[in-house]
């Protein structure tokens, strides 16, 4: 009977946590919008002057000011700004002369492709290495992980990108150079998804596919290195916690094979916290891609942002900041929720 009656406390708890999640996410987004609004409208000394120039008459100046809506109270301006953002209107870029939202939609898949391959490398190598290091605590592999983690904190990503280009592209010739594909492959496949590898596979143009992969490999591997360093260190620390528990000793005493102790006993409980770690490092990759894309002339959102920064193209800067910030917050919040849903102790 007990199973049929819904547990009231549990439902209330779930509703409260969902409401709390929605509220916090909403507040964070409003905070993000407030910051971009503040940066765009408040910090610049006089946004009107930058439009009309300093030789405009007072009448022209006032007219432009009214046309830009800057004569109204700041809170009204902010609400207008939020409304425009929700309609997908991020203003016009002065360097591409297209709507910023349209620009961002074009460049975003390139970043997504690189960050996704990066996180696949980071998880695919980082998790096994972390488990290995924990199982052989104090061995050479443990020391290697330690060094990796330290380098992940202290090596500039842009520097590693340049050194990688010098060594693997110019020196050894193992990978292709900057850009997404060689110039004579450009525009050969239709941009269905915007992801070059997927598009080439859809078009069954394997020549383009391999060329795109050769270009993607190095920047993705460098991004992957930074998430590998973090994921391996966290995996190692989670595993060490588990391996010190009594149930592990019990399993060992019972004579369970060591690989079974590690993978089926100790590894299972850490899958949940690992999801959060992976989510966090995926979000960090989006941020790291700003530097890497600049080094590799990768036509993604990071490169778009830095080009806009150098041209003082504020609409483009704020639009890109908003999109990266929103994706970053969303990934953070979703991995947080996944953790709560998947971890039986928090139910």
């Amino acid at each position: 009977m007990g199973a049929a009656v819904p547990d009231r406390g549990r439902i209330q708890g779930a509703v409260a946590s969902v409401a709390g999640f929605v509220l916090l996410t909403l507040l964070t987004f409003i905070g993000l919008l407030a910051i971009t609004f503040f940066i765009g409208r408040v910090i610049p000394i006089d946004p009107v002057l930058s439009v009309v120039g300093d030789r405009a008459t007072q009448d022209q100046y006032d007219a432009a000011r009214a046309a830009m809506g800057l004569d109204r109270p700041i809170i009204v301006q902010f609400i207008d700004y939020v409304g425009a953002v929700f309609r997908g209107d991020l203003g016009r870029s002065i360097s591409t002369n297209r709507p910023v939202a349209q620009d961002l939609a074009t460049v975003f898949p390139a970043t997504l492709e690189m960050a996704t391959l990066g996180i696949l490398i980071g998880v695919g190598l980082g998790v096994p290495l972390g488990v290995w290091a924990a199982a052989r605590r104090g061995s050479w592999i443990d020391q290697v992980i330690r060094v990796f983690a330290l380098l992940g904190y202290s090596v500039p990503a842009f520097w590693l990108g340049l050194v990688g280009l010098a060594v693997f592209y110019a020196g050894l010739g193992w990978v292709a150079g900057p850009g997404r594909v060689d110039i004579f492959y450009e525009g050969l496949v239709d941009p269905v998804t915007g992801l070059m590898l997927v598009d080439a596979a859809i078009a069954r143009d394997w020549e383009v596919f391999w060329n795109a992969l050769a270009h993607l490999l190095l920047p993705a591997a460098i991004l992957g290195f930074f998430s590998l360093a973090y994921i391996a260190r966290m995996t190692r620390s989670f595993m060490l916690d588990q391996l010190g528990q009594e149930y592990v000793t019990t399993a060992r005493v019972k004579g369970v094979a060591e690989w079974r102790v590690i993978w089926t006993h100790a590894f299972r409980p850490i899958r949940v916290p690992l999801i959060t770690v992976i989510g966090l490092s995926y979000a960090a990759l989006l941020e790291g891609s700003v530097m890497i894309e600049t080094v590799f002339s990768w036509p993604g959102i990071g490169n778009y942002l830095t080009v806009a920064l150098l041209n003082a193209d504020m609409n483009a800067v704020l639009g890109a900041t908003l999109v990266i910030g929103a994706v970053f917050i969303l990934i953070n919040r979703v991995s947080d929720v996944l953790y709560r849903v998947l971890d039986p102790r928090s139910r």
Binding site: T28, G31, L32, I35, T36, I39, G40, I43, P44, A283, A284, L286, E287, V290, M291, L305, T306, L309, A312, M314, V317, L318, T321, I324, G325, F328, I329, N332, R333
Partner: peptide, 16 residues
């Protein structure tokens, strides 16, 4: 502030 990407935020502030 904690849930924002720090580098991006710093970039936007420097831009302004």
């Amino acid at each position: 502030f904690l849930s924002m990407p720090k580098l991006i935020l710093a970039l936007a502030f420097v831009a302004a």
